[in-house]
C-alpha cells in the first residue's frame, strides 16, 4: 500500500465558526416545560385536594400544601362497610363489568370483520367499510332518543346490556379500522404458505394470523376498555337505578349529595382515573400505535 501525503495548502484560511446556539432547541425546551406545567398542575391540585379535609380545602387563600394531610377521603370510598364505600365500590364494579364485556365482545365481532375487509374483495366492501367508519362521526346525543326507545322496546333499560350493546358500536369502527391495518401489514404470503402446507383458510387465520396480530388485538382492547370506562352520556340516560350505575354517572351523585365535599369528589375522581391511566401506562406502546394507525402511512 502506498499512502499519498496530504498537506493543507499554505493559502488556506479558517473562517470564523458559523455554528451558533440552536435557539430552536431551547425554544422547544421552554415550550415543553410550559406544557408540562399546564398538564400536570390540574392533576397535582386534584391529588393535593384529595388529601385535605373539607375544612382545609375551603380556605382562602388556599393551603398550597395540606397542613394536615389525610387519607380519610380514600378510606371512606374504599370501605365496603360504610354507605359511601359500598356505593362507590358497586359503581366501580359495574364500570369494570360493562367495560370488560364490551371489550371482549367487541374483539370477537371486530376481528372477523377486519379480516374480511383486509383480505377479501367482495362487492360492496368499500361501501360497507366506510359506512362502519362513519359511525365515528355521530355524537352520542343524537342517538339518545331512538336508542332509548329501542332499549325500552327490548326491555334493556336499566340493564348493563343496553350499555354493552351501545358501547360495542362505539368501539367497533375504530377496532375494525385498526385491526384492518394490522392485518394489511401481515404478508398474505404467510397465509398462502400455510394453506399450501396443508392448513384450511380458517386454520391459517387461527394458527398464523391471529398470533401475529396480537399487538393489534391488545391495542383495540385498550381502546374499547377505556372508551367504555369513560362513557357518560348513555349511562346517564339509560340507567336510573342506583344499583346499575357506572362510575362516571355515580360520581355525580356523590357530588349532588355531598354538594360541597370537594376533597371527597377529588378522591373519587382520582380513583376513577387510576384503572385507565394504569392500563395506558402499561400498554402505552400499543395505545399510541392504535391512535395513529391508519392516519399515518409508514
Amino acid at each position: 500500500m502506498t499512502s499519498i501525503p496530504a498537506s493543507i495548502p499554505a493559502e488556506a484560511v479558517r473562517p470564523t465558526a458559523t455554528r451558533s446556539i440552536d435557539w430552536w432547541r431551547w425554544g422547544g425546551r421552554v415550550f415543553l416545560v410550559f406544557l408540562l406545567i399546564f398538564t400536570v398542575l390540574p392533576m397535582a391540585w386534584m391529588l393535593l385536594t384529595s388529601i385535605k379535609t373539607q375544612f382545609a380545602a375551603l380556605q382562602y387563600p388556599p393551603q398550597w400544601w395540606p397542613a394536615e394531610p389525610t387519607l380519610q377521603n380514600y378510606t371512606r370510598l374504599l370501605d365496603p362497610s360504610g354507605s359511601i364505600g359500598k356505593e362507590f365500590l358497586l359503581y366501580f364494579w359495574n364500570s369494570f363489568y360493562v367495560s370488560l364485556a364490551t371489550t371482549i365482545l367487541g374483539v370477537a365481532v371486530a376481528v372477523p370483520a377486519a379480516y374480511a375487509f383486509s383480505r377479501f374483495r367482495f362487492p360492496g366492501r368499500t361501501f360497507l367499510f366506510f359506512a362502519v367508519l362513519l359511525r365515528n362521526m355521530f355524537p352520542a346525543v343524537v342517538f339518545l332518543v331512538p336508542l332509548f326507545l329501542l332499549m325500552r322496546w327490548l326491555g334493556l333499560v336499566n340493564t348493563h346490556g343496553s350499555l354493552i350493546l351501545t358501547y360495542l358500536t362505539f368501539g367497533l369502527p375504530l377496532s375494525i379500522w385498526l385491526l384492518k391495518g394490522f392485518f394489511d401489514n401481515i404478508p398474505i404470503q404467510l397465509e398462502q404458505a400455510a394453506r399450501i402446507d396443508g392448513a384450511t383458510r380458517f386454520q391459517a387465520f387461527l394458527l398464523i394470523v391471529m398470533p401475529l396480530s396480537s399487538p393489534g388485538i391488545i391495542a383495540t382492547s385498550i381502546f374499547s376498555f377505556i372508551g367504555a370506562w369513560n362513557e357518560y352520556v348513555y349511562a346517564y340516560t339509560f340507567l336510573s337505578k342506583q344499583e346499575t350505575m357506572t362510575l362516571p354517572v355515580g360520581i355525580q351523585r356523590f357530588f349532588t349529595e355531598f354538594a360541597t365535599d370537594w376533597p371527597g369528589l377529588m378522591a373519587a375522581t382520582f380513583m376513577m382515573s387510576v384503572p385507565v391511566v394504569v392500563l395506558f401506562l402499561v400498554l402505552q406502546k400499543y395505545f399510541v400505535r392504535a391512535l395513529t394507525e391508519g392516519a399515518v402511512k409508514h
Binding site: 404478508p187 404470503q189 404467510l190 398462502q192 404458505a193 400455510a194 394453506r195 399450501i196 402446507d197 396443508g198 392448513a199 384450511t200 398464523i208
Partner: peptide, 17 residues
C-alpha cells in the same frame, strides 16, 4: 384447495412464520 393439491411453494419473501 391448496392444501389438497400436494404441492410445496417457496415465496419471494420466504413467508416464514
Amino acid at each position: 384447495d391448496p392444501k389438497d393439491r400436494d404441492i410445496a411453494m417457496v415465496f419471494q419473501n420466504y413467508a416464514l412464520y
